[in-house]
Simulated assay, not measured.
Amino acid sequence: MSTEIKCPSCGHSFAPNDAIREEVEKELRNKAAEWQKKKSEEFQFKLEEEKKRLQESMEETTRKSIAAEFENKLIILEQTNRTNEEKLKEARQQQLDFLRKEQELKLKEEELELSLQKKLQEEREKLSGDLRKLEEQRIAAKETEFQLRIKEMEEKLEAQRKLAEEMKRKAEQGSMQSQGEAQELLLEDLLKSAFPFDTIEEVGKGVKGADCIQTVRNKLAQECGKIIFESKRTKDFSPEWIEKLKSDMRSQGADVAVLVTQAFPKDMDRFGEKEGVWICSFAEVKAIVHLLRDALIRISFASRNQENKG
């Protein structure tokens, strides 16, 4: 192997000796060390630069990432806030609508209640007015009916009075027996004429005291009771007549007894009931029989209703 060294300036080649060799090697080592140091420094610089660049890049990337994330979060937060605000606004509006509707409903209920109370008051007043009118009409009708019945009673009593006077005039022309028989016949004719739907029958000759029996019938021709009559035409009243007529009433199955007489007991001056027997004059007999007959019909009607219920 050649150990010659070529001069870079003149191009002359020569063999190096030990001193030169050492100097050259030393120089080469120094240059190599310097180059290595330089390269190392350059590498270190580049490495630092690269590290710095990477650091800056990472920081920039991190910053951008953080900024982007923060911006995204901020956007999301703003969107959430807007959504919440809209929901809150909508909820408030719904609450306002609900309160308004509730208030409107309450006002309508109050108006309806007021209208209902007003109508009820009007109906009460109308009903009260109608009841007053009906009561006035009923009272007027009763008053009219009462006056008519009084007038009818007066007319009947007047007719009976005239009839009694006529009978008295005719009776005075005959004997006392004839007068009594005439009054009995006149009483039967009066009852038959006044009550054509009833049955008027003469009591048999074997029965002392009683003259005739009236069988009362209603509008359906149903028997409702019996009235037994005894006619007396004397100047003085005898208490024995009452007991005799009551005995006849029981034996004949009659419900009411009527004694028609010219003379009244000392404690009576007009028609009335005494010891279970009705006492009246001939002029009063028709009106008295009307009342007694109506009473028997009502009692019979009530008795039939009770039997039907039983």
Rank of each mutant, 00 (worst) to 15 (best):
T62E: 12
E125A: 10
S57K: 15
F98A: 03
L105E: 00
T83G: 05
S115N: 07
L96S: 05
M58I: 13
K108E: 02
I66S: 10
E123R: 08
L96N: 03
L88R: 12
K118H: 07
E125H: 07
L74F: 11
Q121S: 11
A91I: 15
E78V: 13
E110Q: 05
E102Q: 04
R82I: 11
K73I: 09
D97P: 00
L99S: 02
L107K: 04
K87C: 06
E109S: 02
E85S: 11
E104I: 00
R100S: 10
E71G: 09
S65D: 12
A67W: 03
L120V: 14
N81C: 09
E90Q: 09
I66C: 07
E86T: 13
K87A: 11
E69V: 15
R124C: 06
E109G: 01
A91S: 10
L96W: 01
E111A: 03
R92L: 15
F98V: 01
Q79H: 10
Q95A: 12
A91C: 09
E59P: 01
Q103A: 04
L116M: 09
Q103V: 03
N81K: 13
I76C: 07
Q95D: 05
K101H: 04
E102G: 01
N81W: 08
L74V: 15
E111W: 02
K126T: 09
N84C: 14
L77I: 14
T62P: 04
K87D: 11
R92Q: 15
Q79C: 10
E113K: 08
K73W: 04
K108N: 01
K106H: 00
E86W: 06
N72F: 08
K118W: 03
Q117F: 06
L120S: 10
E111P: 01
E102N: 03
E90N: 07
L88F: 08
L107M: 01
L74Y: 09
Q93C: 04
S57L: 15
F70N: 13
